[in-house]
Design a protein around this nucleic acid. Structure first.
Lengths: 216, 216, 216, 216
DNA sequence: CATGAATGAGAGTTCATTCAT
DNA sequence: TATGAATGAACTCTCATTCAT
């Protein structure tokens, strides 16, 4: 009789992390309701009962998954954006490809789609994302745009709507990837999108003579 | 009271239509899994058993709902877009506000969100939408853009990506409305968005001298 | 292929009654926690799911069972007791055997034991029984005793404590039957108990000269 | 500090006793099924796993609790009762208040209620209590009554039923306290009950001239 | 066609019990 | 001995689907 893997396994305190990782995968594949705790447990390598050592309910696990994506990101992005030295056009040149890259690898994308999908049934989560991630992000970008307008770099217009302009093609590409690529659609080339989007924004959002700004 | 006509045959007997209408409301409020057939039947004014006289399963009803939005729209939009006489810039001027208007009232918006939300669990639906609605629409717009590029009205670049550029802010506004407005967020002013978006596209996508080269 | 019993059976409105009857049996045999809905359903001849067409939760079924015993009894007993024409001693002669008889056949006995057993975990039920059954009953009996004292038939003393005296041997016999008889103990002869109890009460609670009462 | 005695051997190491004490509290508050081993362990100040070093199963702990109450009591009570010198009436005068006192403080009361509540599910325990505690007690009292009858102190009648008469009001008061007092009912004054009960028994059970026939 | 009571498989959750440490 | 993280069987409850009427 081979000893095989022991029935009871390690009991580390990275269990919550493993569970959240497994849950993220299952929730984002199936949605909240269709996700089975059995499968989350299996993928996390624990028994179903073990989930309840760390989380109170299925919904609680879902909350943990959604909140995972938020905390570490906002401050870092804010710091990097606000520390950028050059003009707004230069910032776009740097950051559009960065967004494209982040969306390709980060779980933020999957989680964002989950928030969109399940927001109606979990208003607290929608509110949490709105308050903790989306509003701050838009605030940061709007602020940068407003200051760029003061400097004459960006045309007149509502900075929030400009922020939407900047982000929305990436959101659409993300949803495309999650929705239509699995059924055979061609995925968008995020780098090409970033490049072409940069062109549109330079031509349509920035002023043609950025040197006209009041203080050089 | 004549015994001739059987009572009054109370309505056009558009039971399937009534069921789909009720189902659209419930599915878009709750999502597929959380929608109860009891509620759909109640809103449709029929018994739960009656649903099964017209549809085989819950999923079947969902399919019917999703397909509803597609058929009548594509051909009409295509006809109107391709019949537009003026230059591409003029077309944008007309159609951006139209898109804004349609998204405000049409069920296409709700259904689109449903497709995004539930696509993973119902690949046939994702494929159906992709094949029947999204791809044709993008094809139409890409075609217009391509011809406008031939006429020198639109800058060089991938017409499909330009199509994304055009649509994506409206998609984002729609998702914003469905996701964050219910938890207290400010909705976007779709008309203002259309106006500002038009400005960006004119500056960033169109050429400044469209008549420059009539034939390439 | 024999038709056999149809899979779906009658749908009368005496289902609640059948369920409560089955539930009474199971709850009183096993206690609340150890009673399985599977068994209640099986004994009621319905599926597990059918229970939920009539009751919201297991606890709800338990409530229904407990309340069953109360309503029809109090008023009837009160009427009969208060309509009794003769002296208190005669009333005891009639009613002690009656109590013995009722406890032998009525579900009140089982339910009473359930209330005692589960009262801690279901305070509402304890309160309900206290308010609706026990307190009224004791009130009635105390009232009779008080008036008998006024007539000089019953010795001085707290009428409520006398009421306890009257009832308690029957309660004890009931609990004996439910607790020890199933493991082989000899059951009490309720009639003999009633007779001997009557003797004790006549000698120890009633006055020796009932004719001394003020109004004869 | 001498290295001799190993540390201080912190306590008498009466773990089983501590566990039983904790378990008594939890079982009598919640009943068997609703009692959680987690809570017993917590109250006993040990880990959940430690319970299994001393007892095989939850049921085993329950057994230990129930048996606790029995052993030390029977012999002592028997000795004291049988050593009582005076007539039966005098014995009642002494012992009724004693019973009242014991029921107020001893865990026997709680355990007795547990046996009543859970007896159906644990027949061995019912049998154990019946055989080891209840039957002996009733035997002792019946014997005393029988001898008192022989001495002409107690009226004719089944001694066992007289024993029931004597005890049952206290049992009822106990169950009242456990069941209805927690939901707001007035508790019985056990001393008043003992006094009034004594009066009833003297009048209804004892003869008026105990010395009449010394030997029958 | 239409009803809605009834079904039963399947889900989330609990908790006595086990075992690696 | 002692711990407490981990297990997994069992339970209550839900709801899409079916069928007697």
């Amino acid at each position: 009789m081979q000893p095989g893997p022991p029935k009871f396994q390690r009991r580390k305190d990275d269990r919550p992390g493993e569970i959240v990782t497994a849950a993220l995968a299952v929730f984002s594949e199936k949605g909240f309701a269709a996700a089975k705790l059995d499968e989350i447990a299996r993928r996390a390598g624990v028994s179903k009962g073990a989930l309840y050592l760390y989380y109170e309910t299925k919904e609680d696990i879902f909350h943990a998954v959604v909140k995972t994506a938020v905390a570490p990101n906002v401050e870092m992005v804010k710091a990097r954006l606000e520390a950028f030295p050059g003009p707004f056009g230069g910032l776009l040149e740097i950051f559009l490809p960065t967004i494209a890259g982040v969306l390709s690898v980060s779980p933020v994308a999957s989680i964002g789609k989950m928030v969109i999908s399940e927001g109606r049934n979990f208003p607290e989560l929608a509110r949490y994302w709105h308050d903790e991630l989306v509003t701050p992000m838009i605030g940061i970008v709007s602020g940068l745009i407003g200051r760029a307008q003061d400097r004459g770099e960006v045309r007149p217009g509502d900075p929030k709507l400009y922020a939407i302009e900047i982000i929305s093609p990436f959101l659409m590409a993300l949803l495309w990837r999650e929705t239509f690529v699995p059924v055979g659609a061609e995925p968008f080339d995020l780098n090409a999108l970033a490049a072409q989007h940069l062109g549109v924004l330079k031509g349509g959002m920035l002023t043609s003579n950025p040197t006209a700004r009041s203080a050089s």
